[in-house]
Simulated scan of single mutants.
Amino acid sequence: MPLEVFALIMMIIVFIVALFLIPVLLQLRTTVQRIDDLVRDVQHDLVPMLKELREASEHVKRTTEAAEQGSALLTALGESAGAINQFSHFVKHDLGRLAGNVAGFWAGFRAAGKTLAEQKQHKERR
């Protein structure tokens, strides 16, 4: 009989713990999914940007070497202008978009912090 009572108490304890853990695990799963999405977005945006930057850098390097060897100056200047144009496009569009995403996340975190602080002050007043 005491073993059955102990087993019943253990089952009740396990049920209560599971009842509290389920919402925590669901929230944790949502948080992990959001972090995974953020990392995927950053990787998606960052890899092409780095590739373009490497290409532009290599292009400038080749152009500089060609200019140093005394090859046609106008051709080298044209390639340099193209590389600078590529880099400018990269800075204007891709970095701007990434900076906008980061600024959006920052604003969200600030708003969440202010909301939590206001809720805490509201609870303290009661």
Rank of each mutant, 00 (worst) to 15 (best):
5 V>C: 13
6 F>Y: 12
6 F>V: 14
10 M>D: 09
10 M>G: 08
11 M>R: 05
13 I>E: 12
19 L>K: 07
19 L>A: 11
20 F>C: 15
21 L>I: 03
22 I>D: 01
23 P>H: 03
24 V>T: 14
27 Q>E: 10
28 L>N: 11
28 L>C: 14
30 T>R: 06
36 D>P: 00
37 D>Q: 15
38 L>A: 13
38 L>V: 04
38 L>F: 12
39 V>Q: 06
40 R>M: 15
40 R>W: 02
43 Q>H: 09
45 D>L: 04
47 V>Y: 13
49 M>I: 09
51 K>A: 14
53 L>T: 00
56 A>I: 00
58 E>L: 02
61 K>D: 05
61 K>N: 02
63 T>M: 07
67 A>P: 00
69 Q>N: 09
70 G>R: 04
71 S>Q: 15
72 A>H: 10
73 L>Y: 08
75 T>V: 07
79 E>Q: 05
79 E>M: 02
81 A>F: 06
83 A>R: 00
85 N>L: 06
89 H>E: 14
90 F>R: 00
91 V>A: 13
92 K>T: 13
93 H>T: 14
94 D>E: 14
94 D>C: 03
96 G>F: 06
96 G>Y: 05
98 L>K: 07
100 G>I: 00
101 N>E: 15
101 N>Q: 11
101 N>D: 10
104 G>V: 05
104 G>Y: 02
105 F>R: 14
108 G>S: 07
109 F>K: 15
109 F>N: 08
109 F>T: 15
110 R>E: 15
112 A>T: 11
112 A>M: 11
113 G>Y: 12
114 K>L: 12
117 A>F: 11
120 K>L: 08
124 E>W: 05
125 R>N: 11
125 R>I: 09
